[in-house]
Amino acid sequence: MKIALINYGAGNIQSILFALERLNVNALLSNIPEEIQSADLVIFPGVGEASSAMAKLKDSGLDSLIPTLKQPVLGICLGMQLMCNESKEGDTAGLGLFDTSVIRFPGTIKVPQIGWNTISDLKSPLFSGITDGSYVYTVHSYYAPLCANTIAVSDYGEPYSAALQRDNFYGVQFHPEKSSSVGSKILSNFLNMAL
């Protein structure tokens, strides 16, 4: 099984590599379209600011590649947000894979949200074996509201999309690589999607 971890200079990729290693899987770090295209699974990470991350993605031409991928793709945190229609952070146009905008949490609650929150209304094989109300680690200032692509719900001030899916594209707002045994199980479920 070949797993490509998209390396475009935005994100703490080392943690994801280590989490996969704990599952006895080695991922290939790559920004080369052919390598990414030929992988069985693709992980699209990201932390930091949306517009600069999107600029880096465009620099390597990966913004046009990702929407054409046919294998399961998992966006994590900012990766998930960039897969949406747009982000209000830096007024960034997204890849349009998930049919929602990404907006900022209101000033009435502490921003960023940092810590362990529950996920519920789990609607995907990505969460197979995960109990409703399990805890995952999350850190973000912007979020995707609930929409037709929502496959997991968390609540911070109001309910929002903890995870999204459309066809072969998956996205999680939280960090499975930092979410202890629950996160490890979610990553393992993703690995099981390899054809």
């Binding site: 080392q14 280590f18 290693e21 704990r22 680690y137 930092k178 979410s179 490890s184």
Partner: peptide, 11 residues
């Protein structure tokens, strides 16, 4: 830090 990150699965 590298060793910790490899072994510890919380932030």
């Amino acid at each position: 830090v590298r060793h910790i990150a490899a072994e510890v699965d919380i932030p």
